[in-house]
């Protein structure tokens, strides 16, 4: 199963617990990572997710961009995107 599908099928709980039903992998996301994952699951691209983080959290666009890029890198390394 390709990465995009794996991210979409990820079970995401409000407390940040993520479960991949196709591999059994589990992850724990902090609130910012959780918001990014939910944004990506909702179909937003990286720039839209950055805007969403800036709107929801007290962070600068640069900080939001760094966090989003960092998480996307991790998601890629786990073949989730």
């Amino acid at each position: 199963m390709r990465g995009e599908n794996r991210l979409l099928q990820l079970s995401v709980k409000d407390d940040g617990f993520l479960f991949d039903p196709s591999t059994g992998d589990t992850y724990v996301a902090n609130p910012t990572a959780l918001a990014i994952v939910r944004g990506l699951q909702a179909g937003r691209d990286e720039a839209q997710v950055v805007d969403q983080i800036v709107a929801e959290y007290d962070v600068t666009p640069a900080e939001a961009h760094r966090d989003t890029a960092d998480l996307l890198g991790r998601l890629k390394s786990w073949q989730l995107v």
């Binding site: 479960f19 039903p21 196709s22 591999t23 059994g24 589990t26």
Partner: peptide, 20 residues
């Protein structure tokens, strides 16, 4: 998927999954 195993490699904790 096995989450943890014993020193003999036997499953101790696991989670169900569905993989095509």
């Amino acid at each position: 998927k096995k989450i943890s195993t014993t020193s003999l490699g036997k499953v101790w904790s696991a989670v169900t999954l569905k993989n095509e």
